[in-house]
Simulated assay, not measured.
Amino acid sequence: MLFGHHHTDTFHILKDDQGNPVQVMLMAPSVTPWFSDLPGAGSNNPAFRVIDYNPTTWDYNEIDTYYVNLTQLNLNHTTPWQLEYSMKKDYNLEKIDAISMNKLFENMKINDTVFMKYIQYNSVLWDPKRPEGKFR
């Protein structure tokens, strides 16, 4: 399932009654930046996604996220959009599906490097900071 205009770059895993991942919800960051003062929430640079998929199977081949750095854009209005990351490549996924994304999620729980990569992409590289306490 694909969702847009979420501001942050995130995903959710839907599981069946036995706890098996059956669907992934991919929330795309927004072109509209968001500056939140909610506890545990952050801000984001503008972004958009390009999804390459197999039109026969509907499997995702790759999902690329592009962004513009607002700090740089405010200094120079010709600052270009650039590739932030490619989901399969940068998260080292064989597929983009519920099972692979659930494995990624489980890995984030124990691997601070992978978790911090997620935090960077979640904020679209806007001042990413590692969450502490209950927000970790």
Rank of each mutant, 00 (worst) to 15 (best):
H77T: 07
Y60W: 12
E62I: 01
L75P: 00
V50M: 11
K89G: 00
V50Y: 09
W58A: 10
T56A: 15
F48H: 13
L73C: 02
K89P: 00
S36V: 06
T65K: 01
V68L: 09
S43R: 02
S43D: 14
A47N: 03
E84T: 06
L70M: 15
T65V: 15
Y60Q: 04
T78N: 14
D90Q: 06
N61L: 12
A41S: 11
N61P: 00
Y66Q: 04
L73W: 15
M87E: 08
W81V: 07
N61W: 02
A47W: 05
A47M: 05
L75T: 10
D90L: 02
L75S: 13
Q72I: 01
Y66L: 09
T57E: 12
W81T: 07
V68E: 02
K89L: 01
Y53N: 03
L83N: 12
D90C: 01
N54K: 11
L75A: 13
T71E: 11
Q72K: 15
S86N: 01
P55I: 04
F48W: 08
I63E: 12
G42K: 09
A47P: 03
I51F: 09
P80I: 09
L73R: 14
V50Q: 12
W81A: 02
Y60H: 07
E62G: 07
D90A: 03
G42V: 10
E62W: 07
D37Q: 10
Q72C: 01
L75I: 00
N44C: 12
T56D: 15
Y67Q: 11
A41C: 06
N61Y: 10
D52T: 09
I63M: 13
D64H: 10
K88M: 12
